[in-house]
Design a protein around this nucleic acid. Sequence first.
DNA 1: TCGAAATATTTTATGCTTAAAATAATTTGC
DNA 2: GCAAATTATTTTAAGCATAAAATATTTCGA
Lengths: 168, 168
Amino acid sequence: MALAKESPPVSSKNGADQEAEYRAQTRLWLRLLACTTLIEGELRRRFREEFDFTMPRFDVLAQLDREPSGLVLGELPKRLMVSAGNLTPIVDRLVEDGYITRTPSTLDRRVQIVCMTVEGRKTFRRMAKSHGSWLAELLAEFPADKLDGLIGKLDELKGVVRDSLEKP
Amino acid sequence: MALAKESPPVSSKNGADQEAEYRAQTRLWLRLLACTTLIEGELRRRFREEFDFTMPRFDVLAQLDREPSGLVLGELPKRLMVSAGNLTPIVDRLVEDGYITRTPSTLDRRVQIVCMTVEGRKTFRRMAKSHGSWLAELLAEFPADKLDGLIGKLDELKGVVRDSLEKP
DNA sequence: TCGAAATATTTTATGCTTAAAATAATTTGC
DNA sequence: GCAAATTATTTTAAGCATAAAATATTTCGA
């Protein structure tokens, strides 16, 4: 039913219609992407307008906020699911701006520890509060009793995708 | 129950715990972002490895595939939810590579019509088939009977977010 | 112990993305 | 008709993202 809404399957001469097999999965992906793009764009805009900040910078601070004693630099790319090279200039600037510190480990000179400063923590907490309220506002009309259900389904989705990526 | 899993609410001296009010929405956003990031990364990787192509380029072709007579250039940023300036170099390169044409309108010299070439359509169809099968593979373990339900919930989510963005 | 493999991080090249300003053409209001 | 507003598109500047190569350090193995 919902499957045929956008464009009806076209029967192929060669038997099975490959395209139709993929349709539901493709539709799911397009919806997921649309939701994420919409929300991300609005969050980005607000971060810029209200705090002259970016989401990737906020994401780094969010990781460090939960680690009072700091994090090994190499943990950040893993947790944030971005490449290591990507983080270098972002961390550079957060250090320059005084939000975090970057300290070489005395045990292993390849390793560095990044840690939020007091000032950084203060700024982060303020932004995090706004971030939460922006989301609450954007999603206000989504039925509250369906929130947990959707979260659960997305958890499941994340699990199957991750499994699929790890196995082959 | 699921609400308190990641980090338990901390009661505030000032009465209501603001953070707790936002928690469910924030969790939803983080799941959404995680799913999208996982899938997008894998699709990007495969596009590059298999076709030496990028997703933004594929997205432009996907729009044009449905428009045999082409599209006014200005329609693309709207449909793809990206800025106009963003598309300029992407369209430039697709023209250079012979996948699409860009023709100035005779009626209004500000306007240009973009249209897929025969070669472009052939290439796109080939990539689209792979794209569908990659998604089918990534999502294979997601229960088929829950697919439409999740799509529907995401449609609803998209609706409420869009409404929230249009009104204020 | 000393050369090779492994690990942590940065650099480089390329491409996407935005916002804001610039350019060019058309339409509107007087 | 013609100046001003509008519309379509490109340019610019800044930042994010990746992959691949480079650098520096440590660990491992013969």
